[in-house]
Simulated scan of single mutants.
Amino acid sequence: MATEHTYRVTVRGRFDHLDREARERLLAEAGAHTSPQWRFTENGTLRYGPDLTSFAFRYLVTADSEEGDGLASLLAEERAVQTLDEAGYGYAELRCEATDMDVKKAGREGR
């Protein structure tokens, strides 16, 4: 029987084909997305700069440990795509990086 692990997943990408309205919304909210409060959360935390070239989300994902970080990355990417699509923000070149926090924690305890 598989167990669930907690993963920290960062989804990175670049903005692509933003229309004027999307650019204005992003720029108006840029201050809230550059703060040091960028944390891993279930709903994701978005970060980008005022140049509107690249962005990153941080997600906290619970997934089957047998599926590993691949499943956690897929789930986080789906969440990022949904958020970007709902906001009407064009994007490209998504990539994910996942860390299994249960394995990392076990490694620290084994020292």
Rank of each mutant, 00 (worst) to 15 (best):
L75K: 10
M101G: 14
R12T: 03
A2H: 14
A80G: 01
V81F: 00
H5Q: 12
A56M: 08
F40L: 07
D102T: 09
E29P: 06
T10Q: 06
A92C: 07
C96K: 06
Y7P: 12
Q37T: 06
N43R: 10
V11F: 00
A22Y: 09
V81A: 05
Y48N: 05
F55G: 10
R47Y: 13
P36T: 02
A2T: 14
T6I: 15
G13N: 03
A63Y: 07
A28C: 15
M1H: 10
T41D: 11
H5A: 12
E93P: 02
Y91I: 04
E97N: 07
L18W: 13
L52D: 14
L46T: 03
H5M: 08
Y59V: 00
L71R: 04
T62F: 06
L27C: 02
E78N: 08
E21A: 15
G110K: 13
P36M: 12
E77P: 01
L52K: 05
A98S: 11
H5S: 13
G110T: 00
T34H: 07
L74K: 14
S35R: 08
S35Q: 12
T53V: 15
K104T: 10
D64T: 08
W38C: 04
R79V: 05
D85G: 00
S54I: 07
R12L: 08
D85T: 11
P36Y: 12
W38Q: 09
G13T: 05
T53M: 07
D64Y: 07
L75M: 14
A56D: 11
M1S: 15
L60H: 04
F57Q: 01
S73E: 07
T62D: 15
L18V: 05
Y91H: 09
G44S: 05
A72C: 04
E109C: 09
L94C: 12
H17E: 09
A106T: 07
A28W: 05
A63C: 04
T53P: 00
K104C: 03
V11M: 00
A63F: 09
T6E: 04
T3I: 08
A98C: 03
R95I: 04
E97R: 09
F40G: 00
E66G: 03
L52R: 08
H17I: 11
T99P: 00
G68I: 11
A63I: 00
S65K: 14
S65R: 13
V103M: 11
D100R: 04
W38I: 05
A106V: 10
E67H: 12
L84E: 00
A63S: 14
R58H: 10
K105L: 08
D16Q: 09
R58C: 04
L60V: 01
A76R: 01
A2D: 10
V11Y: 01
Y59T: 01
K104L: 15
R95K: 14
G31W: 01
D19A: 02
Y48E: 13
K104E: 08
E77W: 04
R25Y: 12
D69M: 03
L27T: 13
Q82N: 10
D102A: 03
A92L: 11
R14D: 01
G70L: 11
R47T: 01
L94D: 01
K104H: 12
R108F: 10
T45K: 03
S54F: 08
L84F: 00
E66A: 15
S65W: 01
R47E: 05
G68D: 04
